[in-house]
């Protein structure tokens, strides 16, 4: 069986992370598995976890009153789930539901952000990896807002 550290090192998010930080991150990590239909977290839950998806698919949902839940994004193999653990108020923005059997590594967000506070180089390293993902997701949201495939009339 692969060690946690090698699994983490092979995940695109931690690609080429300096080994001392790799060890540090591994210290906050554990394996986790979600069955299809299982909720990983709910909107407004405390955001204490940072998931790296190894395999599977997770839907980020919002549920407007009186309507069916709407999926706004899905994340899958090699991607990450959640960055609310890094920024106050540390609350989850969406319901996250596994839509199929999902294996992931969970990092203790509280532990990670404390370490980032102590070691700004690690903090910068993690932010440099997170920001492009956050930027992309904002870009995607704008495109979804534009409703490019719609009729526009």
């Amino acid at each position: 069986m692969k060690s946690l550290e090698s699994i983490l090192a092979n995940h695109p998010f931690f690609e080429n992370l300096e080994s001392k930080y790799m060890a540090l991150v591994t210290g906050c990590a554990s394996n986790v598995r979600f069955e299809a239909g299982q909720f990983i977290h709910r909107q407004n839950d405390e955001a204490n976890s940072f998931y790296l998806i190894r395999q599977g698919k997770v839907a980020l949902e919002v549920c407007p009153p009186g309507k069916k839940p709407v999926t706004v994004q899905t994340v899958t193999d090699g991607e990450i789930l959640g960055w609310a653990w890094l920024v106050p108020p540390y609350l989850c923005q969406f319901d996250a539901q596994a839509v199929e059997l999902t294996r992931a590594i969970v990092l203790d967000g509280k532990c990670l952000r404390t370490k980032c506070g102590e070691d700004h180089t690690l903090g910068y390293e993690l932010l440099s990896r997170l920001l492009p993902i956050i930027g992309k997701s904002m870009e995607a949201t704008r495109m979804q807002l534009l409703d490019v495939y719609g009729n526009n009339d």
Binding site: P12, K57, A59, L60, E61, K68, P69, V70, T71, V72, Q73, T74, T76, D77, G78, Q97, V99, E100, K136, A140, M143, Q144, D147, V148, Y149
Partner: peptide, 23 residues
């Protein structure tokens, strides 16, 4: 296959088409 928006019945991907490139 990915769609911009779906209700929770959809088991496929949700997101813009470019998100599929790295997949």
């Amino acid at each position: 296959v990915t769609v911009d928006t779906a209700d929770s019945d959809w088991r496929g991907n949700v997101g813009v088409v470019t998100t599929s490139i790295p997949r």
